[in-house]
């Protein structure tokens, strides 16, 4: 958001540097049930982002002082692998990943029927294999598919996508260049059946009008992602495949 460039991010015809129109998302690929050991898992590619999510649980909650006698807690760990960005990322937890883990877990709380598993923990692990703007949304998208794949009762699946602004245009699903040199980024996630917002962040500079447009675009984008999430789950359980259930 802070960088400057002479690069034209959106040309006169409203085409972006990767050929997309303003309200078009990147190619999305979602696969459910990709890890043998996890109770549920998913692999997501959004453009050049490559993300793995695994769910373990419901299982005994550690550390025990975090146990909630009325419901399960969701513990999320978002982690960027060292080679996922152009400079090597220092391994381990940093402040950014703590924040993303927190808001991801909070977004999932809304849909998971945690009250069915008192004192338990549902552990969600998100690994970013390759990052190209939009990893928190890709991570949450993968995590919700992994939760469904784990057979954990949920009210709905949570899709996530970012809207933003570059060269003065409101855009859906920013790529790396648009994210670095654009003017705003609005990652969001919704519960598709009600359009309620469960994750929302914003940074940059937007007028009310631009922001309203970004939200409208984001909600539509989320519904596109939702369709692909459902397809991935259907594929996993309909073609027999490598299912071990």
């Amino acid at each position: 958001m802070s960088g400057t460039t002479d690069m034209i991010l959106v040309n006169k015809d409203g085409k972006r540097i990767d050929g997309r129109t303003p309200d078009e998302h990147r190619d999305i690929k979602i696969e459910a049930g990709v890890l043998a050991n996890a109770d549920g898992s998913a692999y997501v590619e959004i453009g050049k982002n490559k993300v793995l999510a695994a769910v373990y649980g419901p299982r005994e909650c550690h550390p025990r002082h975090l146990q909630d006698p009325t419901k399960a807690i969701i513990q999320c760990k978002y982690n960027m692998q060292t080679y996922s960005v152009s400079d090597r990322k220092r391994p381990g937890t940093d402040r950014r990943s703590v924040e993303i883990s927190k808001i991801t877990a909070e977004a999932l709380e809304k849909v998971v029927l945690t009250e069915l598993y008192p004192r338990a923990s549902i552990d969600v692990y998100i690994e970013i294999l390759q990052a190209n703007a939009g990893t928190r949304c890709a991570g949450l998208t993968a995590a919700s598919v992994a939760l469904a794949d784990a057979g954990i009762p949920m009210r709905d699946i949570v899709p996530a996508i970012a809207a933003g602004k570059a060269d003065g245009y409101v855009l859906l699903d920013l790529n790396k260049e648009e994210d670095n040199f654009g003017q705003a980024d609005v990652p969001m996630a919704i519960v598709p059946s009600t359009n309620e917002i469960v994750l929302l962040q914003m940074d940059g500079n937007m007028t009310r009008e631009e922001f309203d447009k970004a939200i409208e675009m984001g909600v539509r984008g989320c519904h596109d992602v939702y369709k692909l999430q459902k397809e991935a789950l259907l594929n996993r359980y309909s073609d027999g495949g490598d299912s071990d259930e």
């Binding site: 519960v191 914003m202 007028t207 009310r208 939200i215």
Partner: peptide, 24 residues
Amino acid sequence: DGNFRAMQKGGQGSITLDELSHCL
């Protein structure tokens, strides 16, 4: 100028689009 520069939703609940508009 009353333009938006940063936002953060938190908590385990959700907000509807109408509520979002009211918050803004």
